[in-house]
Every structure is written in C-alpha cells, then in structure tokens.
Design a protein around this nucleic acid. Structure first.
Lengths: 120, 120
DNA sequence: GCTAGTGTTATACATCACCAATACACCTAT
DNA sequence: ATAGGTGTATTGGTGATGTATAACACTAGC
C-alpha cells in the first residue's frame, strides 16, 4: 500500500510499521498468517531477507509466532496490546513534539482537531 | 539545547533544524550572526566540518548570508518566509499523518488536549 | 605585517546501516 | 524421494556519516 518508500526510514522498518497499522485497522487478523517474505518481496521488488528483517522485529516483540516451515502467524490477543502500547508511545513521545510545532507555527491544536472531517 | 542527539537523524540535519526553530522562537534574530562553526563544534564536541554542513544547508535555502571572513548572518525578512514554508509543510505533510494515527488509536480531542502545559 | 578570527575545501579514514545475492534448514504434500 | 513452500544465516558491496588534519582565502584589530 505504501506507494513509495520514505528514503529517510529503512524499508524493513516501514514494513514493520505497515503490519502494525494493518493489525490495528483489522486488515490483518489474529490467527492469520503474514504474507510470505517472498510474496512481499516480489510485490515490492525487494530482497526476501529485507522483509525477513521486518518480520524478525515482529517476532522479538511477540506480535507474531513462527511455525517452522509454515510461516509467521499473528498471536491471539495482540491487537489489544499493540493498541495500548501505541497509545502510550504516541501520547508521550510523538504528540508533545507535534504540540510544540503547532505552537511554534502559531496554529491552534483545537482548530486543527475540530476541522478534521469524519471525526466522531 | 538539544541535550542529546537523535541517533536516527544526522547531526548536521538536527543542527539545521535547531537554527530554524531558534529563528521562529526569536532566539536568533534577523541580522544577527550565527555562532561560529568552531564555537558550536567545541560546545557540542563535534567536528567543525559537521557544523559547516548544517550551515551550508541554510545558505542554500537563502536563510543565511555569508560575509567573507566575518561569518554567517541571518537575512532580513526570513522569519516570515520560514513561518509560511513550515506551516505549509506541516499542514500538508505532517499533520495528515498525525490525524491518521489519532484515528487509528481512537484518541479523542479530550485525550489530546487534556493537561498540556504552557498553553496560551 | 602579524595575529586571530571567520567559513570552506580537500584528503584520508573508520564505522555503520542498509540491502542484495546466495545458500541453507525446515515443513508439507505428492 | 522430490518438489515447492516456509524463514534465515552469511557474506559482501555501497553509501552516508562523522572525524581528523591540514591548508586556503578572507576580514578585523593591533
């Protein structure tokens, strides 16, 4: 889905982030298998090892489980954990920086949040 | 002021960003000289060439002007230009990504605006 | 003229992250 | 057993980053 890569971020990190996003968006469901490294690699014109590197991050974080010779599977109950973790990370790390920038640019966070559409 | 460097971003880019921020925050004023490369280098334990690299970016963007043998000086009228440029960049590139993430994490305006400090 | 201050350039160097090519180990089905 | 599907360990190349060192050209003050 990432039409192009952000040259400032390693591709395998972007792939990792994509999986996280797809889990949160219910495009990847718990219990499902990740697309194979070779499939992703051919889809994006990458080396399978590059994809594997992204998948290793997911294993280290216990988001995904390896079944030898079969593939990687999304663990049960993981969406909830990711959601909680990402919320904390966003609120503590990313959002304060954004707020700083908003203030520096003399913009209003209230206005920006109010102006979004489809918000509920 | 950056107590530590963000390992994911080249130091010279962070130095560049710092100058931009200091101009917007009125810590660096139009007409003023930038601190010399050697001073900054010694302050942060860096190589002068690394600092120079940041200063070159500022020259290429016409934010700063070289006076041979004297130093680099912030051009007049530049704050306004930077502010406009940064606003556009923020609204078109950064903010949409932030909004996406906010939606994905089901965060509300209350969550985001609750207890921030220094608000005006 | 001399000295000390500007930024810049050139060279060499070490290090590291990134990514690709290859080969390997494993599982499953036929 | 063979073929085709998993992920991955290894190796090597490339480029970016930052340092070290030195030299250069210019300005300012004495």
């Amino acid at each position: 889905m990432a039409t192009q890569w952000d040259g400032d971020i390693p591709i395998y990190v972007q792939l990792y982030q994509q999986v996280i996003r797809r889990i949160l968006d219910d495009h990847l469901l718990e219990g499902e298998a990740l697309p194979s490294v070779r499939k992703v690699a051919s889809e994006y014109q990458l080396n399978p090892v590059t994809v594997s590197k992204a998948y290793q991050m997911l294993q280290e974080e216990e988001i995904v489980e390896k079944q030898r010779g079969k593939g990687l599977f999304i663990k049960e109950g993981v969406k909830k954990v990711i959601l909680a973790r990402e919320r904390i990370n966003f609120l503590e790390k990313e959002w304060p920086v954004v707020l700083d920038q908003i203030a520096r640019l003399n913009l209003s966070a209230e206005d920006l949040l109010a102006d979004r559409q489809g918000g509920k």
